[in-house]
Design a protein around this nucleic acid. Structure first.
Lengths: 179, 179
DNA sequence: CCGTACATGTAACCCGTTACATGATTAA
DNA sequence: TTAATCATGTAACGGGTTACATGTACGG
């Protein structure tokens, strides 16, 4: 086994909640789950087929208009079991791949002009990201009711916000010392 | 162009500092740079050959004992130029792939027993990581002299420490609210 | 002499990205 | 009628992991 295939478990997790088409699943990577993982339809469709062959999921075909068929995928008993087993398994930690951090590693001189430019461009990126995430939280969790219903999601969003806040703080700190 | 190939730039960055063999380069992913990126020798050796074909690097062969030959790679003018161009290019941001965060996303119930177990196991991981990183910093940057010489590296290590601190704080916060 | 470290390579395989490809439905 | 969205697929390719493979040098 060469890689992890976490996408499989994401799809199981999403289908556990409700039956969906490959198209629907693809779209969820453009919103909610998209903050934490990415996937294209070209990866999702073949994977769904493989997962069906493994009996983790199944599908029923339905008509949209007069001709267009769509495949509504749903999770099987085996699929649910596999998903729960994954939840309980120890989580492996990947090293974080951040291109900016990588570049920074190679800059030895505190007085480097390039460094200043790099910091300011990163500052604006992470500032925007922070604003975006805070807005997301407000939209999805306007009251404690939503938090109780999707506790994990709220924690994950809060974590992303705190991470971006930390990133911004760190950048601002650097900026102060080099300017 | 399907992917990024950041490893190429890491190798250039390392060779810019000093000439090294593939073996040496492989080893540096077990220490310093290993905190921020991973790579195996099976990836490095073929890449070095490709980079040589692109005239980014070159090598001279030397003898270790009586038979064993090693290839000492060094960076070319073209290689230096390519590296500098990369440093100046805008940094793309990848979404962070954290398996624990992913699992958490799917846990709706704040009272879940599984959640408690997951939190405590993560707490110990990130606590250990934090200790490790702080030790690394003390070892590599015992005084301001080293920081001035390798400013970027010091920033990157400080960032990793603050990130782990933030992660731990967040976990502890969750633990308090669910216990 | 024996185990560890030094030193270099290839092959199989999976994951993920980009691009190619096609067609139906719906709302403006 | 036409543009956006819905809907599903395949192909090519590059990056990264695991495993296979071989041999030398050196210190205890």
């Amino acid at each position: 086994m060469a890689q992890k295939n976490r996408l499989k478990y994401i799809l199981l997790g999403l289908l556990k909640d409700k039956s969906q088409t490959g198209y629907d699943l693809t779209k969820s990577f453009e919103s909610d789950i998209g903050e934490f993982w990415t996937a294209n339809h070209s990866q999702i469709y073949p994977l769904l087929k493989r997962m069906e062959a493994e009996r983790l999921i199944d599908h029923k075909t339905s008509l949209v208009g007069e001709k267009l068929q769509k495949k509504e995928y749903f999770i099987t008993e085996t699929g649910s079991h596999t998903f729960e087993k994954w939840l309980k398994s120890p989580s492996e930690i990947d090293t974080i791949h951040d291109e900016f951090i990588l570049k920074l590693y190679f800059i030895d001189d505190p007085q480097s002009v390039l460094l200043k430019q790099m910091i300011t461009s990163q500052q604006s990126y992470h500032r925007d990201k922070l604003v975006h995430l805070k807005m997301q939280f407000k939209e999805k969790f306007p009251s404690s009711k939503q938090i109780k219903q999707h506790f994990g999601h709220s924690l994950v969003l809060r974590h992303a916000i705190e991470r971006e806040q930390g990133y911004s703080d760190w950048l601002n700190e650097i900026y102060k010392t080099i300017k």
